[in-house]
Design a protein around this nucleic acid. Structure first.
Lengths: 207, 207
DNA sequence: ACCTGAACACCGTTCAAGT
DNA sequence: ACCTGAACACCGTTCAAGT
């Protein structure tokens, strides 16, 4: 039929997919429905994600976990990692944060939580996918230096990083899990609970 | 064709489903495949789970989260909750635990972690389902009294419970997420990391 | 009550074809 | 390079029918 230069891109596809997920849940995302939303035949998506839905899922997971995402510039240098999802912006100079370690960690944790909450429909995608993005590398460095500053050393550092990651991920999972239940807390109280546990964890880690 | 008194039951179906999930992942579980594994036409499952796959998923989630599960005795009294998944055994007298609160919590947390790890293939099912089982009620009581004993009061108690739940769930999710990755820890080190964070969290909560 | 078998609408994916 | 359209194997679910 009529040709369709839809101007498809990996990022457009991912974003549209996230909209569908937000509206109808992860189970409501089908290639055909995604095609419809993009005004394209479902099969057009395979040109951008040749390995199909699994690859799309990986890209969504990477998109969700990586903070700095920017429109599809730097195309065509061959992917340095498996599924970067989309290209990442340069580290915008990271303007050295001179606040105490616990404030830096708290800021990071609350931002990470907010991000997971925003894409909570895709949360179960993260359960079996740990994308290897540049953002993850930055996070690793941030947490590492903060915990070192807190007085940790040796194997305690990666263990503390793990604990913090686990707490954030679990906290959002736990909140989503009980959402819409009888006595489930409002977002304000949910945030308060998150902070309560976070303070305890950070205190216990540095003690 | 030949009649088939397969002796199907909700529990048999759930257990077979868990086997398939363990072997081929959650996406590999289809009603038809489940029927094959049970030597039955797929449609026979709908007699035991009239609301289909969604109801089966709820039942699996309940089965996974509830410790005390026993074969399908007490049938036919009408479900007191939405999807109990299968019947639960009586509380087996709970033989009062007189150890200090932190040891009791540690024991609970490690058992909960082990259980989630056993059914890690079904982990993403728990992400959007918080079944209302008797076992959950017991847990609530256990954690509540332990944290009260630790010196917490008022809103701090449910917040501490939330934090502990979140940490356990997130810890398993985090482990499964990185499983099979280059420098992902062995199970022994994973357990050590879990304990490290758990000790920190409990210490921070009671401090 | 418990299970079968055909049917329907939908799905992911392949492949040849169009521009 | 980018997208279409038909095709195939598979899926969840309904419904009438068997015992």
């Amino acid at each position: 039929m009529s040709r369709n230069y839809a101007g498809l891109s990996r990022e457009r596809i991912i974003i549209e997919a996230l909209h569908i997920i937000a509206g109808r849940g992860l189970g409501g995302l089908s290639m055909r429905r995604l095609g419809d939303a993009l005004d394209v035949e479902a099969m057009a998506i395979y040109h951008h994600f040749p390995r199909g839905k699994e690859q799309l899922f990986n890209a969504i997971a990477a998109y969700v976990t990586t903070a700095r995402v920017v429109s599809g510039l730097t195309e065509g240098q061959g992917p340095p990692e498996e599924e970067p999802g989309s290209e990442e912006a340069p580290a915008e100079a990271a303007e050295a944060d001179d606040r105490p370690w616990d404030e830096r960690l708290t800021t990071w944790a609350e931002a990470y939580r907010a991000r997971l909450l925003t894409y909570s429909g895709a949360l179960s995608l993260l359960m079996h996918r740990a994308p290897h993005t540049l953002g993850e590398e930055d996070t690793r460095a941030l947490l590492h230096t903060a915990f070192t500053e807190a007085g940790l050393a040796g194997t305690d550092v990666p263990r503390a990083c793990d604990a913090l990651h686990s707490y954030c991920l679990g906290s959002v999972a736990h909140q989503v899990r009980h959402r819409g239940q009888e006595d489930s807390p409002e977002e304000a109280e949910a945030l308060a609970r998150f902070r309560f546990g976070l303070r305890a964890l950070l205190g216990g880690l540095s003690g």
